[in-house]
Nucleic acid binder design. Structure first.
Lengths: 262, 262
DNA sequence: CGCGAGCTTGAGGCGATTCAACTGTCGTGG
DNA sequence: CCACGACAGTTGAATCGCCTCAAGCTCGCG
């Protein structure tokens, strides 16, 4: 049996983040929600630093993050690192629309991570598995009606990636940092892991640096500046956004628009 | 009737780029190729600077670039600009897996552009139109079997976007520029628009700057350096890669891996 | 207690930006 | 025909943002 408690959440409710995440994209039928709750059966936990998905790995088992943080990144030959995205509970891993990853990217756990890997044996896959086209030419097999959710999720992720490009290409360290904090706050709110303007961000400054395209030292100084100006509070992994409006102006932040779920 | 010749290519062969682009991703049946050739009927040309697709535009007519160059970009409130991707002939526009663009990005023509917008009235769409799920819950309507091509194309594009993130986040101006030139050469080769190591790149240094996340001045100096070191030749919009191997080492460039089409 | 990982701080340097001017090449109109 | 402006490219000089190097610091933990 896996650890009974991860990140202070009992296993029974751990799948809640997935439900909340998907519900934000499109309403779930009771049957669908129940399906997702059932994911709690097949939980795997991995240690920080472990690889959740690597480049060439063809099998590529799609799964959901239940707790913990991870990142998708690439390593340059000389050791430089660039993080593409930060993965939080509720996020999907390996649901590439296309089986072959093509892009040499790796997903690594940043903290202890709990994963739910659905049993794809029945119904083959949620979105179109390794040979969706072979068995169902011209279509995707989606017995449970999650295809729309996953499509929208992919779209949301692309939006986040575009935001990231803007950050790296055209924003200063100060703006980038503010933008990231707002984005994380928004995403954590979606899954109910941000109370008011506070949230927990279990990332070292090195990880932030590799995400923001900055040096560790400069991330440190930038965070200090944000604190000094009383825009945020940070101690340990605890973050408080003191002036969300002003931060949003600084970073030109606008949250992704979601379908009219309200 | 639209202009008979665009970019020196006769209309009859203009759809060839689309065929070559898709064939590189997955073989096309004769019927499919014929379908694509038929796109030549519905050609639209737009002037440089025109918007091909904008943010809120819900209808969003998916189409293929037949000739000319365009870019996908975002504008910051203070005028800064970041280009996400450069679009060349054969590329698809607006085939977002999900109808709602979500991301505030705009597609703009950089040169005169010829577009083919398929007649989606029959068969609804190639990939899943505005309400694919409504009419075909849990599946996508794809009467002609292009779904796989479009999926792989989307995957390839994501790979390019990841490359872009690495460029912007962790590479120097020198490396970025080399990387971009190699990427463009590879993409143009796919559609047969690069002879040997030469190709035409109708981009101003301002566009390059907004793509590479640099200032115009620095792009200029960086290109000069690449020329001075005899790694490339450039005059006007004509580019020659003199030392592809060395450029690839500098930029840590590795082309996307394509399915075993050979 | 001592160690290591992460955070903090200072000093110096380089890469890239900004501002500003100048060049060359167009197409346009007097 | 040449004057003209518009535009792209080029160059120099000064500045700044961010990086690197190198220490110290703090804390949790064996």
């Amino acid at each position: 049996m896996m650890s009974a408690r991860v990140n202070g959440t009992s296993p029974a409710s751990m799948t809640g983040v997935v439900v909340r995440r998907l519900r934000a994209l499109k309403p779930l039928t009771p049957a669908q929600a129940q399906r997702l709750e059932a994911l709690g059966d097949r939980i795997e936990t991995v240690a920080p630093g472990a690889t959740l998905q690597s480049d060439g790995a063809v099998p590529m088992r799609p799964s959901f993050m239940l707790s913990g943080w991870a990142c998708r990144m690439r390593l340059l030959p000389d050791g430089r690192r660039q993080i593409f995205s930060l993965l939080i509970p509720g996020d999907a891993i390996g649901f590439c629309v296309e089986p072959s990853p093509l892009s040499s990217a790796v997903v690594v756990a940043l903290t202890k991570v709990a994963l739910a890997t659905p049993d794809w044996s029945k119904g083959e896959s949620l979105m179109g598995g390794p040979d969706a086209s072979a068995s169902h030419p011209g279509g995707v097999h989606d017995p449970w009606g999650f295809a729309d959710h996953m499509r929208r999720s992919a779209c949301l992720e692309e939006g986040l990636l575009l935001d990231h490009v803007v950050r790296l290409g055209r924003q200063t360290a100060y703006e980038r940092t503010a933008h990231l904090l707002l984005e994380l706050h928004w995403r954590l709110s979606l899954i109910g892991e941000a109370v008011d303007r506070r949230f927990v961000m279990p990332l070292t400054q090195e990880i932030l640096a590799d995400f923001l395209g900055l040096s560790i030292v400069h991330v440190n100084r930038t965070l200090q500046q944000l604190r000094r100006e009383r825009l945020i509070e940070m101690s340990g992994s605890h973050v408080v956004l003191l002036e969300t409006a002003q931060l949003a102006v600084i970073a030109d932040y606008q949250p992704q628009v979601l379908p009219q779920t309200s």
